[in-house]
Design a protein around this nucleic acid. Structure first.
Lengths: 256, 256
DNA sequence: CGGGTCGTTGAAAAAGTTCAATATTAGTGG
DNA sequence: CCACTAATATTGAACTTTTTCAACGACCCG
C-alpha cells in the first residue's frame, strides 16, 4: 500500500484531526490507484466518490450527447475531487499526467468523518472552496468574448500552478488546447487564435505545446475584464491590484 | 424573532440533529431579515455568510467591471446559500421576490455545527449538491448554442419550481429575461428570440412575463443536447427518459 | 528520424450582439 | 375599474465574433 500517497493525504486533510482511529479507518476504506496520462481514472460509478489526488493532474469531464465533452474542472496534486455517481450524469475523471490517487466512497468517508468533526469540517471547507472555484468558472464562461475567457483562464492557472520567475510567471499546462476549449466553451481554433493574439502583443510567450509565460498580469487582468472601472474612487486603486490575491491563495490550497 | 423562519430552518437543516443545544445556539447567532423584491439582501461582507432562504427567491450575482453582472445561481425557499466575504470578489445576493432569510457568519455556524456532526454533515451534503448544481450550470454554459442553453435552463427550472399540470409543466419564473441572459451568458434579445422560437414550435407557451408552460419535455431535452445518441443500445432507451430524474429530485431538495 | 497527433492559419458560413424601433406588461393613480 | 406610465420584452437589420471546414506546420514519442 503506497504510504507516500496516504502521508500526503494525512497532511492535507487530516491535519486537524486528533483521532488515530480516523486515520486508520480511512486508510482501510481508501482505494489506492495509479492512472497513466490520458487514461480515465477507474472509479466505482455506483456511489458518489471522494478522490484525493496525491500526485499528477486530472480533468473532470461531463460527456454529453454527440461527441462534445465539457471540462468541469482541472485538478492538481493535493486536491480533493467530488465525483458524482453514474446516474447523476456521465462524469469521468481523466488523468492529464500520471497520477497517484486515493478514492473513497463518499458515504463511507463521511460516516467515518462524522466521528471526527474536525475532518468533516476540513472537507466542508474544501467543498466550499470548490464551489467558489466552480462559481469563478461560471463567471469566466459568462464573459462573452473569447479573449476575456482565455485571459481569465490563464490568470486562474497562474494562481494554481504558476512559478514566479521574476519578470514573468511561467506555467506548464498539462492540458491540451482542446481541453482548454472544452473547459471554456470555445473551439480549439478560437483558443489557438487567442493565444496567437496575446503572443503577438507580447503579453504572453509560449514554448513547446505546454509552456506559457505570462509577462503582463495587469494587462491580462484588463483583458479578462477584471479591474474595477478606472479609478471611480481613488482610494480603491491602492487595494485593487491585490483583489485577486486572497482568492489566489485559497485556490492554490485545496480542491474537492 | 420570526419563529416561522426558524421552524423552516429547523426542518430543513437540523432534522438529523438530536441536540437541543445546537438548536438554541444557532437561533442565537442567526440574523433574521426581510428583503423586498429587487433589493439587495444586506449581509456582512466581512466574513463568509451562510444564508437560509426561508421564503422567496434570490439571485447570487457577481458584479464585474463595466456594468455586466453575471448571475451565478438562482435560489428558492428552503435553499442554503454560501455567500463569500467581500474580498473574495464582488458577490451580491438580490431578492427576486419578497424574502425571509436567516443569515449566519459561516465560521460561527460551523463552530456550533462542529459540536453536532449530524448538522455539519447535512451542510456538507447540501454544499455538495450546490457544487453539483454549479457544475451543471457550467455544463449549460459550455453548450455553444443559445438554444441549448435556454432549453437546459428551462429543464433545470422545471426540476426546481415546476408544477405538473398533466399535459404540461408550468413555471412561474421570478427572474427577468435580463437575469436569464446574465445567468446564461446571453443578451436579453437572444433570450427573447429563443423563447419566441420555442413558442412558435409549440414546445412552450408563455403568458405574461413570468409564466411559462413546457409542453414537450422530451423535445426540450433534445434541444438541450441531452439524451444519449439515438438508441446506440436498445436497452438504454427504456431508462433514458428518467436519466434526469434522480438529479431533479436532488436539485429540488437543497441549496447552499 | 519519421509518423501521427496536436496546433496554427485562412476563408466562408453561421450564430450572436448591437442598435434602434415597437409592443406588451404590470403597477399607479385618477 | 380604467387609463396612463415606466419598465420589460419583442422584433428587425446591420454588424461583429465565433464556428466550421480545410490545409498546412510543428512538436513529441518511439
Amino acid at each position: 500500500m503506497p504510504k507516500v500517497s496516504f502521508e500526503k493525504f494525512r497532511r492535507a486533510v487530516l491535519a486537524r484531526s486528533v483521532s488515530k482511529d480516523t486515520d486508520t479507518r480511512l486508510s482501510e476504506i481508501g482505494i489506492f490507484q495509479h492512472a497513466v496520462r490520458g487514461e480515465e481514472v477507474s472509479l466505482s460509478g455506483r456511489t458518489d466518490q471522494l478522490v484525493f489526488l496525491a500526485e499528477g493532474s486530472t480533468k473532470l469531464v461531463a460527456s454529453d450527447a454527440d461527441d462534445a465533452e465539457q471540462v468541469l474542472a482541472f485538478h492538481f496534486a493535493g486536491d480533493m475531487i467530488y465525483v458524482p455517481r453514474r446516474n447523476r450524469g456521465d462524469f469521468r475523471l481523466v488523468a492529464l499526467a500520471d497520477c497517484r490517487i486515493i478514492s473513497f466512497s463518499a458515504n463511507e468517508f463521511l460516516d467515518v468523518a462524522e466521528q471526527d468533526p474536525a475532518v468533516l469540517r476540513t472537507i466542508l471547507t474544501r467543498t466550499l472552496m470548490a464551489l467558489q472555484r466552480s462559481r469563478n468558472k461560471a463567471i469566466r464562461m459568462g464573459r462573452r468574448s473569447a479573449q476575456e475567457r482565455i485571459a481569465d483562464f490563464l490568470l486562474a492557472m497562474a494562481d494554481r500552478i504558476g512559478n514566479d520567475e521574476g519578470n514573468c510567471i511561467s506555467l506548464r499546462l498539462p492540458m491540451s488546447r482542446r481541453d482548454i476549449g472544452n473547459s471554456l466553451g470555445l473551439t480549439i481554433e478560437t483558443v489557438s487564435r487567442q493565444f496567437t493574439e496575446l503572443r503577438d502583443q507580447q503579453i504572453i510567450a509560449t514554448s513547446g505545446r505546454s509552456i506559457v509565460r505570462l509577462y503582463d498580469l495587469a494587462e491580462l487582468a484588463v483583458r479578462a475584464g477584471h479591474t474595477p472601472p478606472p479609478q471611480s474612487k481613488s482610494e480603491i486603486c491602492a487595494g485593487s491590484k491585490n483583489d485577486r490575491q486572497p482568492l489566489a491563495i485559497a485556490a492554490a490550497e485545496s480542491g474537492v
